[in-house]
Measured scan of single mutants.
Amino acid sequence: HNLTITQGKLFFHYNPKLCLSEIHKMEEVSGTKGRQERNDIALKTNGDQASCENELLKFSYIRTSFDKILLRWEPYWPPDFRDLLGFMLFYKEAPYQNVTEFDGQDACGSNSWTVVDIDPPLRSNDPKSQNHPGWLMRGLKPWTQYAIFVKTLVTFSDERRTYGAKSDIIYVQTDATNPSVPLDPISVSNSSSQIILKWKPPSDPNGNITHYLVFWERQAEDSELFELDYCLKGLKLPSRTWSPPFESEDSQKHNQSEYEDSAGECCSCPKTDSQILKELEESSFRKTFEDYLHNVVFVPRKTSSGTGAEDPRPSRKRRSLGDVGNVTVAVPTVAAFPNTSSTSVPTSPEEHRPFEKVVNKESLVISGLRHFTGYRIELQACNQDTPEERCSVAAYVSARTMPEAKADDIVGPVTHEIFENNVVHLMWQEPKEPNGLIVLYEVSYRRYGDEELHLCVSRKHFALERGCRLRGLSPGNYSVRIRATSLAGNGSWTEPTYFYVTDYLDVPSNIA
């Protein structure tokens, strides 16, 4: 807008934040220059609390790290170098490059900038070799853009010569660093050979998330399962459950009422301010606690030095998902009996873990797994792929695949051998790939016309006998059925096997 004052003059007093240069501009645009008398524009009460600059400061050096910015700028000295009290560095987070010096300023003089007072450097006698002032900004957020400017702080001049310097606002972004852990990993099994893994992005990506790394490792069953005799009275049979499938998407929606109208769909109840505040506090606490764990609990591995020492970490090797089922080394339970199943799973520490690289999504279907087997899954978020990966501390989750139908069934015939004193040795093959492992066998036998009897055969007993022995049988026709019990439950009964026990007292003698 054009402003013209045809008559009258300007009068400025007691404006401590208004620089004289701005008042002189007002004289020019209003056409009143030359009308004012000496005392109409006070030299001592206008701009006496402001830094009124008329020179431009330029930054000469900028260096960044993930949490620091090192700045240096060209030296500046007023005509009387004693008038320079120091520099004021202003900075704040700036997602967009549209910041002005006066953003967030209120009537009390406060604003949204963080201000650092910096002492002037030592003055050199040689004007050509003056030290460049600077400042190291610490405690910054990774991968965050900051708006920065600097200006001088000078003393009051009796001659009211307006001098000083100020830089333009520059924008500097800190470097990326390792992201925080992925949030809320959930693993479920939808079949006997697959596990579905879902997660949420890290709360602090500290860069642009480029991919996720998912490692999985087959877990050995508890050692007590191999040692305890679950045929003993009072000892509860062990059981394991597989990871249940995901709930429906509708039930997972946030901010939804727990109660549904019987007449149909209901609208979600909005969260109160107290609920939102509580969630923010919980989120802040979780982030602080995660940072504490990362800094205190997890110790970084030592990389190899120039002395030739090897990095103890196993090298990563990509495998196809079809090879995942046989990740671990199978060892027989008892070496003397080769027909026992290889369900003991000690994992070799030198073995390469299978892994998958996930790009542009937060889910993965891990296939080719062994049925009813526990897996430990390790999830890392990465925001750099080359020249070397920059990934987060791992988040861990466990899951067990679903049982395989008929995996616990005894394959092959049940054979028998009759000894003296009416002892019958029953023999059968253990299931080759049971659900988890076989903890015991149930032997059901009966003599024709009598009630059915049951015998429990422990895992250890089966390994020693290759089956079991029935003792003290009365003469007669017998039928026997056997079924295995694994961590997933009972298998199917075998087809009945028949044998006849004679009275050993009636056996004919070869003595003449």
Results as ranks from 00 to 15, higher is better:
residue 206 N to S: 07
residue 206 N to R: 14
residue 212 Y to L: 01
residue 215 F to Y: 04
residue 216 W to D: 02
residue 216 W to Q: 13
residue 217 E to C: 10
residue 218 R to V: 10
residue 226 F to M: 06
residue 227 E to Y: 06
residue 233 K to E: 04
residue 235 L to K: 04
residue 237 L to D: 04
residue 242 W to C: 04
residue 246 F to G: 13
residue 246 F to M: 14
residue 249 E to K: 13
residue 251 S to W: 00
residue 252 Q to H: 08
residue 255 N to Q: 09
residue 258 E to D: 11
residue 258 E to W: 12
residue 259 Y to K: 10
residue 260 E to N: 13
residue 262 S to T: 11
residue 263 A to C: 09
residue 263 A to S: 12
residue 267 C to P: 02
residue 272 T to P: 05
residue 274 S to W: 10
residue 275 Q to H: 03
residue 276 I to P: 02
residue 276 I to E: 01
residue 277 L to P: 04
residue 278 K to A: 12
residue 280 L to S: 05
residue 282 E to Y: 15
residue 283 S to P: 01
residue 286 R to T: 03
residue 292 Y to E: 02
residue 296 V to N: 12
residue 299 V to A: 14
residue 302 K to T: 13
residue 305 S to I: 12
residue 308 G to V: 14
residue 310 E to K: 03
residue 313 R to M: 05
residue 317 K to W: 04
residue 319 R to N: 12
residue 319 R to S: 13
residue 322 G to K: 15
residue 327 V to A: 10
residue 328 T to K: 10
residue 328 T to F: 13
residue 336 A to H: 10
residue 338 P to R: 11
residue 339 N to F: 10
residue 341 S to V: 13
residue 348 S to E: 09
residue 354 P to G: 10
residue 356 E to S: 13
residue 357 K to R: 10
residue 359 V to T: 07
residue 359 V to P: 09
residue 361 K to R: 06
residue 365 V to T: 05
residue 367 S to I: 10
residue 367 S to D: 08
residue 370 R to V: 07
residue 375 Y to Q: 04
residue 376 R to V: 08
residue 380 Q to S: 12
residue 383 N to V: 08
residue 383 N to H: 05
residue 388 E to Q: 14
residue 391 C to A: 01
residue 394 A to S: 09
residue 395 A to L: 10
residue 400 R to Q: 04
residue 405 A to K: 09
residue 406 K to A: 12
residue 410 I to L: 07
residue 414 V to F: 10
residue 418 I to P: 12
residue 418 I to E: 06
residue 427 M to E: 15
residue 427 M to A: 04
residue 432 K to Q: 03
residue 434 P to D: 00
residue 435 N to T: 00
residue 440 L to Y: 12
residue 445 Y to V: 12
residue 447 R to T: 11
residue 448 Y to E: 15
residue 449 G to L: 13
residue 453 L to V: 12
residue 456 C to M: 01
residue 456 C to N: 00
residue 456 C to P: 02
residue 456 C to Y: 01
residue 457 V to A: 10
residue 460 K to M: 11
residue 463 A to P: 06
residue 466 R to I: 07
residue 466 R to L: 10
residue 471 R to A: 11
residue 474 S to D: 09
residue 475 P to S: 07
residue 476 G to W: 00
residue 477 N to Q: 11
residue 482 I to N: 00
residue 483 R to M: 13
residue 485 T to E: 09
residue 489 G to P: 03
residue 489 G to S: 08
residue 489 G to M: 02
residue 494 T to F: 03
residue 501 V to F: 13
residue 502 T to E: 13
residue 502 T to G: 09
residue 505 L to I: 05
residue 505 L to E: 09
residue 506 D to S: 10
